[in-house]
C-alpha cells in the first residue's frame, strides 16, 4: 500500500507498526463516516483522449477528523476536492456525505448540500469586494433562508470568533490577506457546517499569517469540527492529523501525519545510507525529535520538504 515514488526509486517504508496513534482521535471504525467515497471515477474527455482525473478512488473520513489531502498539480486532488465539496459529481462511483448520496444530485440539490453541510475556505478568499464583511459572512445564511435579524447576529458572532467583530463595516479590500482569510473562515463557520473544506488556505499568505490560519484551523478542530485541507505543500499537510496523498487520480498514501513526516524526511535525505538509517528501528525516535523541533519552529523552515 505504501509504495511511494521517490527519486526514481521505490522506497519500502517500514515505519514501525507501533507508530503512535495518540495523534489520531480514538475513532471507532463502526461509526458512520461523514464522508465516504466509493470507487470514484472522474473522466474528462480531452479531444480523443480520456483523462482519468480520479481513477477508482475510495476514501472514508469520520466526524472530528483533521485530514489533509496532498498532491502535486495534476494529481487529481482538485477533482477530489470538487467532489468532496459537492461542487461536482463523479463520472461513476458513489459519494455519501452525511448519509446522503451526493453523487447523482442535480445542480440545485448540490447547492443546498453545499449550503447546509460544507464551509468553504478558498486560497483566494473569494469574498465579494462590494459588500462589507458582515454582508459577506451573512451570505450562506441568506441562501439558507435565515431571517435578517438572526443572520446579522450569527454573522457578527462568527466575525468575533475570528477576531474581526469590530471591523464588520469594512470592505474586504481594506484588509490584509490574513484578515481576509479570517473573514472567509468566519463565513465558512457561520452556517455550522459539518465539514470545513479548505482549498490551499495558506496559498496566498506569507509564512507568518499562514501559521495563524493553520493554528486557527487546529483550534477549530479541537472544538470538534471536521476539517479537510487540500494542499500541494507537504509541510502544510503535516499540520493535520491524517494525510492522504493523491497521485494520478488515486491514493498512494493514507496514514498519520507522523508516518508521512518520516517518509518525507527520508526522501529528502541525499544519501541512501541515511535513508536506510532513517528507516531502521531508530528512525521513529529520530523522526519524533524532528517533528517536535518542527512544531516548535516557525512554519517555513521545512519549506524544503517535498517529494
Amino acid at each position: 500500500m505504501k509504495n511511494i515514488f521517490c527519486r526514481n526509486k521505490i522506497l519500502q517504508t517500514s515505519v514501525p507498526h507501533t507508530a503512535p496513534s495518540d495523534a489520531h482521535r480514538s475513532i471507532s471504525k463502526k461509526d458512520v463516516p461523514l464522508i465516504e467515497l466509493r470507487d470514484i471515477y472522474k473522466i474528462y474527455h480531452m479531444g480523443d483522449m480520456d483523462v482519468h482525473a480520479s481513477d477508482g478512488l475510495s476514501l472514508k473520513i469520520y466526524r472530528g477528523e483533521f485530514v489533509s489531502i496532498v498532491g502535486k498539480s495534476g494529481s487529481g486532488k482538485s477533482t477530489i476536492m470538487n467532489i468532496i465539496g459537492a461542487l461536482d459529481i463523479p463520472t461513476s462511483g458513489q459519494y455519501i456525505l452525511g448519509g446522503q448520496d451526493v453523487s447523482t444530485m442535480k445542480d440545485d440539490q448540490l447547492a443546498e448540500v453545499r449550503n447546509k453541510t460544507i464551509g468553504f475556505i478558498f486560497q483566494q478568499y473569494n469574498l465579494l469586494p462590494k459588500q462589507n464583511l458582515l454582508e459577506n459572512v451573512e451570505l450562506p445564511l441568506v441562501y439558507a433562508g435565515v431571517g435578517k435579524k438572526e443572520r446579522e447576529q450569527r454573522a457578527l458572532k462568527s466575525l468575533e470568533k475570528v477576531g474581526l467583530g469590530d471591523k464588520w463595516r469594512y470592505f474586504p479590500l481594506q484588509l490584509s490577506g490574513g484578515q481576509q482569510q479570517r473573514v472567509s473562515i468566519a463565513r465558512a463557520l457561520v452556517g455550522n457546517p459539518s465539514l470545513i473544506l479548505a482549498d490551499e488556505p495558506t496559498g496566498a499568505l506569507d509564512s507568518r499569517t499562514s501559521r495563524d490560519v493553520l493554528d486557527f484551523l487546529k483550534q477549530l478542530h479541537d472544538e470538534g469540527n471536521t476539517i479537510v485541507i487540500i494542499t500541494h505543500d507537504s509541510s502544510i499537510a503535516l499540520e493535520a492529523e491524517r494525510v492522504v496523498r493523491i497521485q494520478d487520480g488515486n491514493i498512494t498514501f493514507d496514514g498519520s501525519a507522523d508516518e508521512y513526516g518520516v517518509i518525507i524526511l527520508t526522501c529528502n535525505l541525499k544519501h541512501p545510507e541515511q535513508q536506510d538509517a532513517l528507516l531502521s528501528y531508530d528512525a521513529w525516535h529520530y523522526y519524533r525529535r524532528c517533528v517536535r523541533d518542527y512544531s516548535c519552529q516557525p512554519h517555513g523552515k521545512h519549506d524544503g520538504l517535498y517529494f
Binding site: D108, N126, L128, P140, Y143
Partner: peptide
Amino acid sequence: TREIGIRKSLGAKQHT
C-alpha cells in the same frame, strides 16, 4: 463570473 461562482459555492440556487 467569479462572483457567481462564489455565490453558487455558498449555496445559491439557479433561480436565486
